[in-house]
Design a protein around this nucleic acid. Structure first.
Length: 268
DNA sequence: ATGGTAGGACGCCTA
């Protein structure tokens, strides 16, 4: 069987519901993980997703900011909505589902952006981001003969030199500073997570999932960053059949500044 | 070197 998991920072699920519908009809992932839904639970468009064949929806949402949702065609069981850094932000959701005889734990994350000043002493948002990444060390890639784990989301850090349009020019810019990229990779590796995007696409190749709204022409200037990620436990990584980054989605009408990332697995 | 845009909710925060 094929299992398809997608992740997308949609930047308002209500505003971009038509784009989400188009995406689901075209790609038909088994599960879509959304971030920045900007919508509390009572205003979430459950019915629209249900009508598209996605009847199993779990969300962690708040008014105006942040928020994550996991939308599925197959049954999923919500495990936890964890309040990282105990700020009351809705930035994490974990759920469990069955596929190919495996029980898979799926984490959906929206990591804090961190503000503009990359100094934790003077910028509390950057302090919060570093603390959040430290706390993510407790989220490990649990696996066994019949189980595995997948972690996706907008992790708001571009770890490799090829994950940004200019490594040199962004070294002091939040999302690519050494304190972030080193902490990020150390957390990922320490947790036993495999970077599936870089397993499928050579690390030497430039790879972006986000382009600023502020660029005059995002496509021509191509000043992107890889902020969205798909990780898994090593036993699941062995089943990865491909990664697709939907670059053209940045050119949709009224787009999100992030594009969907799709991971396909061949399970027995 | 700076400012550029977008969304939610209605002056300003977050990204």
């Amino acid at each position: 069987m094929t299992l398809t998991i997608a992740t997308w920072n949609i930047n308002s699920v209500r505003l971009r519901l038509p784009l989400a519908a188009e995406f689901l009809r075209d790609v038909q992932p088994d599960i879509l993980c959304l971030q920045e839904i900007k919508c509390p639970e009572e205003f979430f468009p459950y019915q629209a997703f249900h009508d598209l064949g996605y009847a199993h929806v779990v969300i962690s949402g708040q008014k105006g900011y942040h928020g994550v949702a996991t939308i599925s065609r197959r049954p999923i069981e919500v495990l936890e909505r964890r309040d990282f850094c105990t700020k009351g932000d809705c930035r994490h959701l974990s759920a469990r589902f069955e596929a190919g005889g495996l029980s898979i734990l799926l984490h959906n994350f929206y990591v804090p952006a961190g503000g503009d000043e990359p100094d934790p002493e003077i910028n509390p948002k950057f302090r919060h981001k570093l603390d959040f990444i430290e706390e993510m060390r407790t989220v490990v890639a649990e696996s066994g003969p019949d189980s595995g784990a997948i972690l996706v989301g907008d992790l708001n850090i571009a770890p490799l030199e090829t994950d940004v349009w200019s490594h040199k020019q962004l070294l002091k810019v939040v999302r690519h500073t050494p304190i972030e990229t080193e902490g990020f990779e150390s957390m990922r590796i320490g947790g036993g997570w495999v970077d599936l995007m870089r397993q499928a696409i050579p690390p030497a190749e430039k790879l972006f999932t986000w382009w600023s709204y502020r660029a005059a022409d995002w496509d021509v200037s191509d000043r992107g960053r890889r902020l969205d990620h798909v990780w898994s436990s090593s036993n699941i990584a062995g089943h990865l059949s491909g990664i697709e980054v939907l670059r053209h989605a940045r050119g949709w009408e009224r787009p999100s500044d992030h594009v969907p990332v799709i991971a396909r697995f061949d399970l027995d």
